[in-house]
Nucleic acid binder design. Structure first.
Lengths: 410, 410
DNA sequence: GTGAATTATGTAATCGCTTGCAGGCGGAGG
DNA sequence: CCTCCGCCTGCAAGCGATTACATAATTCAC
């Protein structure tokens, strides 16, 4: 049996998304097919008697359809849609009209494939919930959009298997450039990215190579400022609260913290604590810290997001900040001035970082100048309400902490 | 002059990313070309004497290269990489080895094009900075990843031209399904999405159609609970603080607020105020509200994110919450229990919403059952610390607000 | 009015991958 | 020894765009 007519009325419709096509027994096209074009089997849902049920994946709307409707060739349509103004005005309007009527949207996969390059940048972040990462993403995207670039973001949740998958995805998408603002990067992945020949920017990890640029914040300087400031206030029992991220900026902050304390106030007692990144993580870590034998006068948090959780826990236990314990953050996210008390922290210019990343990734004079380098960004101490002289300098020196489980707050 | 040899050594390298190819003057292939394959002009950077400078966009790593190295055809390589286990074990390992050695990553654009369908979902959000949107995105992504789907997100920043661009992008990418969690949707865009035949989920906007499903939270119920609760505490001067989003959920909350107040406490005074979404927006709106003649005993915020900004402003002006003014939020984002005082709010189950969106978008029994429907989700009142009986019921009744510009807080 | 110069459009190869069909190879059965 | 039947593998036609080159349609100079 063969398909004698291609008129659409010949194909019984059941719904708009399912159509039934007649089976074609043709020596040329094999057992299953359609007169006009071969039909791939993966489009077939089931065979029903002498028909096959086909789920229309996408409307068959391509350049050809627009071209046919406008009475021109696909080349002309393509030229119109790409604004190559070599097309005559009348043809142009005819094509645009046809495209509009058909509700045509070019297939960007086909376009990327044909063009061999894309105007899409990728960014990998560890935890989009943390406003620090969002801000960098947002700044990158703003810069990108103003130049006709797109940005796709992948959130790794600090999970390294997720990171591997995301890196694969980005390479598979052949992004024009990739920013890795993650701390769980390992050498194997770095090698994979280096091999991909895609322009890469690492935030705080790895070493610069041919196609790899490093943007890093001078954490040593930032952490030094915090420690010096606390030291100048007279703090001598300090806890550093980090999170479970073995590589990258975190450990650097921790390391610098220890070094600096040892250097400028060698007799101070220190303690390292950690939790997971986030409000809850900060809270739990603080709870654990307070229930330990160590009795800090200051808690130095690895970032603002966790610090806000710490503040909450201290309040729950009736510990006054900064009177009884000083708390510092890092990053200067928006939230740090909206929490109570407002956080003393270190400002990291996310705007500038996002902007820089864009300049490095996108071909241009800036990228020629900066690519393969290491770019160091200076942080700045921001003193707000969460720090003061330690309690020993004030009154009694004894902390008034309540039991761990306070009034239940959902 | 023609290219006599194709051996790579014949092409003088300058760097790994730039190569020089000899010009080919061949009647068959025209003025510029290369013996083995035509060279598209958009790959050419400049002409240098009898050579053209070509920037290698991407390493020429395709199935063919892997196939050649493994001594098989591209079909076999493809089958191996797609885990179609019709391939003999020994061939399989040979192919995998070749792919590994070449650092091969399939081009996903080509794959999508050839397959005619993708396993990528899209999600549009108004403001990724607001944790409410992040949570929905995150829940959708978790569900998606567990089934081998990817999610791409577009942040519209409440800008309608950005939304149009994002919608175009998603359609161009032929996403397998699209979630629109935005409030700035207009009827023209809805039509565009309906025409695209892509499965769509709207959060709180529009009406269900063939391929369009609506997931909406019963705001009437949530807002009623808030108003009833405040009424039961005795509040009679209430301000609703919304944001500049004309369509969708926001106006519904506002409308319901007004209706409910009118119904259950007809003599209460109300006021509508608004700002932009976000911490800063909430703060500024609160400042403006407090400097007006209206003297509310309760501020009902359209969402938690703004409410946190409101809390901050009240604290700056020395207004105690809840003793002098009660504040409520909406959404129950994580932050609402970490701010001070913890917010009384309405819980919207973002987890569940993200999960539902996934079930609707991805073909399966759930989607068959739910697609084209309207799905209503129940919110729940969460009472925390930011609300109490109004001050008139307590002591004097006069508010102790400070001047607008308090101690400078950076 | 005619050929040259210019401009507009068409033809078809190509991007990298998937997959229907064909063909080769090897062992079982006759 | 030959046929039949699976199991693997290869061939080549798409997918939907871009674009080099060819050709058709104009314009223009003389």
């Amino acid at each position: 049996m063969t398909c004698r007519s291609c008129s659409r009325t010949k194909y019984p419709h059941t719904s708009d998304r399912i159509l039934f096509l007649p089976l074609v027994q043709d020596s040329a096209s094999g057992p299953i097919g359609h007169l006009s074009k071969r039909l791939h089997l993966n489009r077939i849902e089931a065979a029903v008697g002498e028909f096959v049920m086909v789920r229309e994946q996408f409307p068959l709307l391509n350049l050809e359809a627009v071209a046919k409707r406008a009475g021109v060739s696909t080349a002309t349509v393509s030229r119109v849609l790409n604004n190559l103004n070599v097309v005559k005005g009348s043809t142009r309007t005819r094509v645009l009209k046809a495209a509009e009527e058909l509700r045509y949207h070019p297939n960007l996969h086909a376009r990327s494939l044909a063009r061999g390059k894309s105007r899409t940048l990728g960014i990998l972040v560890s935890n989009m919930e943390n406003p620090f990462f969002f801000d960098i993403y947002h700044a990158l995207e703003s810069a990108a959009h103003s130049c006709g670039y797109e940005v796709v973001v992948a959130n790794t949740d600090y999970r390294s298997e997720q990171l591997v998958a995301s890196v694969r995805l980005m390479i598979g998408w052949r992004v024009a450039g990739l920013a890795a603002v993650v701390s769980e990067m390992d050498s194997h992945l770095i090698q994979m990215l280096a091999d991909s020949r895609i322009p890469i920017v690492f935030y705080d990890v790895g070493t610069p190579q041919k196609n790899i640029t490093n943007v890093r914040v001078d954490y040593r300087k930032g952490m030094k400022k915090i420690v010096e400031y606390l030291h100048s206030l007279g703090h001598t029992r300090m806890a550093f609260l980090g999170h479970h991220s073995t590589l990258g900026p975190i450990s650097e902050r921790e390391k610098t913290f220890l070094e600096t304390v040892k250097r400028i106030s060698p007799h101070a007692e220190v303690r390292i604590a950690s939790g997971s990144d986030g409000l809850e993580g900060g809270r739990l870590a603080a709870r654990e810290l307070l229930s330990s034998s160590f009795d800090p006068t200051a808690i130095i948090c690895v970032n603002d997001f966790m610090a806000v959780g710490v503040l909450r826990q201290l309040r729950d236990q009736g510990v006054r900040v900064p009177e009884e314990i000083s708390v510092t953050g890092f990053d200067n996210i928006k939230l740090s001035e909206f929490c109570s008390p407002a956080l003393t922290t270190v400002h990291i210019p996310r705007e500038k970082i996002g902007q820089k990343i864009f300049e490095i990734l996108v071909p241009g004079e800036s990228s020629d100048r900066l690519a393969g380098q290491e770019i160091l960004i200076d942080p700045e101490l921001v003193v707000r309400e969460s720090t003061s002289v330690p309690r020993s300098e004030q009154a009694g020196g004894s902390i008034s902490k309540r039991a761990v489980s306070p009034a239940v707050v959902r």
